[in-house]
């Protein structure tokens, strides 16, 4: 239990998707103009991560890992399909995003309207595939670990995009040098925020 909580805190603050790995930067910079839209996108990303990461882990664990097919028959025990993982992961993510979109549209039109345009974009958000690949690389062994890590990463991403949006709303009226306006200053703000987040390094609970 302690281990899981530690992983959760780590994935939010220390291994933050944006500040430590720069994953999902494209939509992070493009959609962070207002707080409202960025909250929507943040929730959508967290939700999709919560669904896709465990599914991808299951696929990896029972189908792709070296020797993973041993449960099927003994002849397949030395088969290694891990080179297929990129393609399978992205297919799973694209399919699940489509599914989530349809389900949300059916059962909660208001949420669908709020997230609408962002949902299809999430399929190509690096953070989603990134989490799937990190899970594979770090060889997490239980599904609860994977879920906790995925949710933590999602919340970390949410936190980052909402903070940046809030700062960008504030600086609209500041007198920034012309060439630095827009994209340039967003990068530098993100950099400074990342330095601030580094103070969490080494925290262990």
């Amino acid at each position: 239990m302690d281990n899981l909580f530690n992983l959760f805190v780590r994935s939010i603050f220390i291994d933050n998707m944006i500040f430590a790995y720069f994953l999902g930067m494209c939509s992070y910079l493009a959609v962070s103009k207002t707080v409202k839209t960025s909250v929507g996108l943040g929730i959508a990303v967290t939700f999709v991560l919560l669904v896709t990461a465990p599914v991808n882990w299951l696929v990896d664990y029972y189908l792709l890992k070296p020797g993973a097919l041993a449960w099927l028959s003994k002849d397949l025990a030395d088969l290694d399909l891990s080179y297929l993982s990129f393609m399978i992961f992205i297919a799973v993510i694209a399919a699940i995003v489509q599914l989530v979109e349809m389900v949300v549209e059916k059962f909660s039109p208001s949420l669908y309207n709020a997230l609408g345009i962002f949902l299809p974009l999430i399929a190509v958000n690096c953070a989603i595939l990134g989490v799937a690949l990190f899970v594979q690389e770090r060889e997490y062994t239980t599904i609860s670990e994977v879920t906790v890590y995925a949710v933590g990463s999602g919340i970390g991403w949410f936190l980052a995009i909402v903070t940046l949006a809030a700062i960008r709303e504030k600086i609209t009226y500041s007198n920034i040098p012309k060439p630095l306006r827009g994209l340039g200053i967003s990068f530098i703000i993100t950099g400074l925020m990342a330095i601030a987040f580094m103070s969490f390094m080494g925290i262990k609970i």
Binding site: F19, A20, Y21, F22, L180, G184, I185, S186, F187, I188, T190, G191, L192, A194, I195, M198
Partner: peptide
């Protein structure tokens, strides 16, 4: 460290 990559691009 990661933050400086962002600032360099900025």
């Amino acid at each position: 460290l990661p933050p400086m990559a962002l600032i360099t691009i900025g």
